[in-house]
Design a protein around this nucleic acid. Structure first.
Lengths: 334, 334
DNA sequence: GTTTACATTGTAATCGATTACATTATTTTT
DNA sequence: AAAAATAATGTAATCGATTACAATGTAAAC
């Protein structure tokens, strides 16, 4: 392990001068700089980052807490985060909770122990107090989820208007009996999507039948099972809006397993536009979220927090988009 | 920021005693331990990990270099890695290369600068010298890919026999004209899957027609495009084996877009058993890799390397499995 | 030539936790 | 009671890079 003191000896200068050369301080003569650079190259010197981190009290590392790394929705956001992080000399510590609340809480200690300079939360399922507390002390950005009434910088889409838009799409296709498969209702974005659904049907004078609203857990399996439940009704819905694509794909599978056709018998709309939304058959109508952009924006905001630059605002709402594919079609009276 | 010196003052002991209490050294009296724990709790003390890392020259962090975090094959392996890491008090630094060789090389500096204690490579596409060099100096484990002739600890499946098995499955279904869509041939596992394909057809006295072997890039799009190419032949293959599921799904899409049926007109077999393999229609026949187990094993090996424990061997070949679903069927003469 | 201003470099402290070795306290053995 | 052994705790060095302030060198102004 070559240390800075070895370089200084070879170059016949002090360690401070070597450090100044490395940091381009602008206070070292050209001649001395060249001498030092030669020594660095000759010894193949790499600074010990641990020492630098302690001296500067800065790690150039950020923590990203993710509920499920195998869900491509989150991994695409992570890709956006990584892009901006790498451009700014930062590394990303992965905090994959596997939807485990205890693990989520433990990850917060990484900040308290100074092992990361900031945090991006892609999940905010632990109690609000814990999050607000950590955000009061450390740079924290929320992506996708948000906390009501909080000042924590947040990047997301407007889940209410998105869900309203998706539901209106079905209503404009003539559907009057629309089922909604929500995400877990302890998650604020699930509640927003439900709210958007309610708004749309209320605006069009459609009654909200409680049995046409079921709570899923964002998984393919819950979509399948809840669609089976809808199909067991005397009058199944003629269209279904699911709060994410995996559940929508599960719903389509259930419909087809009953010998019914999508969209001819039942239209289906999802949310997120994951990769397989366009591959499944029929291709899924869905709300597209700009995942990569969400990740990038979140990292940009976090860098500002870390550097104590002022933020123009706390809430960044990016544009979503209704992508109409083959899974939704006009209601046909039978 | 509460420091250890503050705790020591409050507890009226030295900082060494506080440190011993924290590390359960077994050399502190019960009475003193309690006094110290009270002070720690009262001050809500959290050790500064940066100082500990420098003193101990250890980060309890490992780097995982991944070619594409949005591919669920890799994110599942990462899940297995994270599981074992967390259990052993380690954190995972994400090295997502986005298939960029330059970025892959840059990530290796993280080891040289001591920012991580070891490395798991899920991609070995940069030159062999760089990898061997880093593995000579630092704990490195390869997962999925391997380097011919190298002693670097490796976890994977036997890609040759897996591919032979998949190809034999099609042969036993009566197919004589089998197309193969390989991965990028600069990647050793792609060459192995090609080798397995060759072995199977040779063993059954089937000629290897060059135009029935095409090189893809593991993406859905390349699967689609190369299947279109096969379909443009005077005599298209009656079955296709693709070197991963995404390409197989693309191939199925191409077949269907031409008004042909899977498997009635053309059988398709994939590789990996990603989540959507069982969801697409028809459900894909594929080789299942134990991704989670690969990740876990890789991390277990890396921990042994880090702790300088002896390894029983360098090569760990885990079991794969042929999963027969609906995309492959008997050849029907026309 | 002397003084002042600026550029360049060096010295030693700093960061906060850990631990080798020394010192002190307590227990056991003779 | 004294000596030996063991337990418990403290002091100060260590880890390796950075940087505040001091010291030295050089150029410009008088």
């Amino acid at each position: 392990m070559v240390r800075i003191v070895d370089v200084a000896k070879l170059a016949n200068v002090s360690t401070a001068t070597v450090s100044r050369v490395l940091s381009n301080s602008g206070t070292v003569s050209k001649e001395t700089t060249e001498k030092v650079m030669e020594a660095i190259e000759k010894l193949n010197y790499q600074p010990n980052i641990l020492a630098r981190q302690l001296r500067k009290l800065e790690t150039k590392t950020i923590l990203v807490v993710v509920p499920d790394i195998t869900n491509t929705f989150f991994s695409k956001i992570l890709r956006g985060i990584e892009e901006v992080a790498a451009k700014n000399g930062y590394q990303v510590l992965l905090g994959d909770t596997g939807n485990n609340l205890e693990r989520e809480k433990e990850f917060l200690n990484i900040l308290r122990q100074k092992k990361a300079d900031g945090l991006i939360l892609l999940t905010a399922r632990i109690d609000q107090n814990s999050i607000e507390e950590i955000a009061n002390e450390f740079p924290v950005v929320l992506a996708c989820e948000y906390i009501e009434g909080s000042q924590i910088p947040t990047v997301s889409i407007d889940n209410i208007s998105s869900a309203r838009k998706a539901t209106e799409h079905l209503i404009l296709l003539g559907h009057k009996r629309i089922g909604f498969i929500s995400g877990p209702l302890n998650v604020v974005l699930s509640r927003d999507r439900l709210k958007g659904f309610h708004q749309a049907i209320a605006q069009h004078g459609i009654a909200a039948e409680p049995y046409l609203i079921q709570e899923g857990d964002f998984s393919y399996e819950s979509g399948f099972n809840l669609m089976m439940k809808f199909l067991a009704l005397e009058q199944p819905p003629t269209a279904v809006f699911a709060a994410n694509d995996e559940m929508a794909i599960g719903a389509m599978k259930a419909i087809k397993s009953k010998g019914l056709r999508v969209p001819d018998d039942i239209s289906v709309v999802g949310f997120d536009d994951i990769k397989f939304a366009s591959i499944v058959e029929p291709a899924l109508t869905t709300i597209a979220q700009p995942m990569f952009d969400i990740g990038m924006k979140a990292m940009e905001l976090l860098l500002k927090l870390i550097h104590k630059d002022p933020l123009e605002k706390n809430q960044y709402i990016l544009e979503d988009k209704l992508i109409i594919r083959d899974s939704s079609n006009e209601y046909k009276k039978k």
